[in-house]
Simulated scan of single mutants.
Amino acid sequence: MENELVVELINKEDLDKYHIVDAPVDHSSDLRRKLENALRLGNEFKSKANIVFMTDDGPKRIETTVWSLTEKYLQIKAGVLLPLSSLIAIDY
């Protein structure tokens, strides 16, 4: 049986209270397809994604709509950017 990591859910409006750092392992290329799907779901259906990323305080999770995606960042509401290198997981 695999142990599931419980990650603290934070409000996306509180992201500025955290120092976002690179994840121990760069998952960005592995997550690319999921990120593109989350972008499409957000733009076409206003669906939210669960995004787990690394901070100085350990992994955190937000539920949000992905607004745009670049080579190095994903953008959420209010122009907030999350570096892809900080991502641990994404689910929708």
Rank of each mutant, 00 (worst) to 15 (best):
V21A: 04
A38Y: 05
T55Y: 08
Y73W: 10
L9G: 01
T55H: 04
H27Q: 15
L84W: 02
L81K: 06
L39H: 10
A89E: 13
I76R: 03
T70M: 13
L41P: 00
T70L: 10
R61P: 00
V21K: 09
L39N: 03
S28Q: 04
K60H: 05
N43R: 15
A89P: 01
S68G: 12
G42L: 04
I90W: 08
E13S: 15
E36A: 08
D14H: 09
K77W: 09
N3C: 11
N37W: 09
T64V: 11
Y92P: 00
F45A: 12
L69G: 00
S86R: 00
V6D: 10
E8F: 07
L87I: 09
Y92R: 04
L87Y: 04
V66Y: 00
G58T: 06
K12F: 12
L9I: 08
R33A: 04
R32Y: 10
A49T: 07
L5G: 02
D22C: 11
D16A: 08
S85F: 01
V25D: 05
T70E: 12
N37R: 13
N3V: 14
N50L: 11
S29R: 14
I20C: 05
T70D: 14
Y18Q: 07
A23W: 03
E71G: 07
I90L: 13
L84Q: 01
V80Y: 06
N3Y: 13
D14N: 14
S68E: 14
E4T: 07
L15D: 09
N11M: 08
E2I: 12
Q75S: 01
V21N: 02
L87G: 00
V52K: 10
S86H: 00
D16F: 12
Y18K: 06
L69Y: 02
L74G: 00
E71I: 06
L15A: 07
N11T: 04
D14M: 11
K17T: 03
L31N: 06
H19F: 09
D91I: 02
W67D: 14
V66P: 02
L5Y: 09
V6G: 03
E13M: 11
S29V: 09
I88A: 03
K48D: 02
I76E: 03
Y73L: 05
N11H: 14
I76S: 03
I20E: 10
L69N: 03
D91C: 03
M54N: 08
D56E: 15
E4D: 08
L9D: 12
N50A: 12
E71F: 05
H27T: 05
E36L: 15
R33N: 12
N43K: 15
A49Q: 04
F45C: 08
H27N: 15
I62H: 04
K72R: 10
D30I: 08
V6I: 15
A89R: 10
I10V: 15
W67M: 13
E44L: 11
K60M: 06
L82V: 00
I51M: 09
A89W: 13
K17C: 09
A78L: 07
K72E: 14
Y73H: 03
K60V: 02
I88Q: 05
E36Q: 14
V66S: 00
K72G: 01
A78P: 00
D56C: 04
